[in-house]
Each structure stands twice: as structure tokens, then as C-alpha cells.
């Protein structure tokens, strides 16, 4: 299933997840279903900004600033990550 992304859409973290920080990323863990998900640094950054306030576009801008990325379609990267989060029910529409 493909989710159509609009830059101005906002998402919020699904309820119940604990954010466990690790050197090169994080682990999301939810007690209710005992599910653990590993996220790399970029995905951790995106997940943290899925707070119901930041739009996809704003998250992409923040990512550009934080990681000083060049030659990469950052908006596309964020959209792909958000799509993956939605598939795994880690976030929901804000």
C-alpha cells in the first residue's frame, strides 16, 4: 500500500512507545504488545519530530540543518521513513 504524502501533513507518535536511546539510533518498545523496533539515527530524528505539530516539510528542513546533507532529496527520505512508520503503526495522523 502506498501512502500519498503531502508536505503539510502532520503525524504524531502512536501511543505507548518508550524511546530507548542507543549510540547510533534508538529502540522503540511498547509493553502492551511487547514489540521492539530499531531505528537508525535518521529515523530516530524523524520519529522524535512526529509530535503532531511539525509537518513533513518542516521535519525535512530540520533534518537538512541537523545533518548537513547535500545531494540528497531529503523530503523524499522523510516521506519514505514516514510511510514505513505508518505501515508499522509507529505513528498516526496528527
Amino acid at each position: 500500500m502506498t501512502f500519498m504524502m503531502k508536505e503539510n501533513r502532520v503525524f504524531k507518535q502512536a501511543a505507548g512507545f518508550s524511546f530507548i536511546e542507543v549510540d547510533n539510533g534508538c529502540i522503540l518498545y511498547r509493553d502492551a504488545d511487547m514489540m521492539a523496533h530499531s531505528l537508525n539515527q535518521t529515523a530516530s530524528f524523524v520519529w522524535a519530530l512526529c509530535d503532531g505539530r511539525h509537518t513533513v516539510h518542516e521535519i525535512a528542513d530540520a533534518l537538512k540543518t541537523a545533518f548537513d546533507v547535500k545531494g540528497v532529496d531529503v523530503l523524499k527520505v522523510v516521506e519514505d521513513i514516514v510511510e514505513a512508520f505508518l505501515r508499522k503503526h509507529l505513528i498516526e495522523q496528527g
Binding site: 549510540d23 547510533n24 534508538c26 530499531s38
Partner: peptide
């Protein structure tokens, strides 16, 4: 292995990890 994947891979071999949760 990187730290995140180390923890995830090691966790699969902890037979009673469900007892401890987060």
C-alpha cells in the same frame, strides 16, 4: 555490528526477555 542492531540481535537470544519488558 552497530549498537542498535547488536541489542536487537542479542535480544532474540534472551529466552526470557518478555519477563523484563522495557
Amino acid at each position: 555490528m552497530g549498537k542498535v542492531e547488536s541489542v536487537m540481535a542479542f535480544m532474540k537470544n534472551v529466552m526470557n526477555i518478555d519477563q523484563f519488558g522495557e
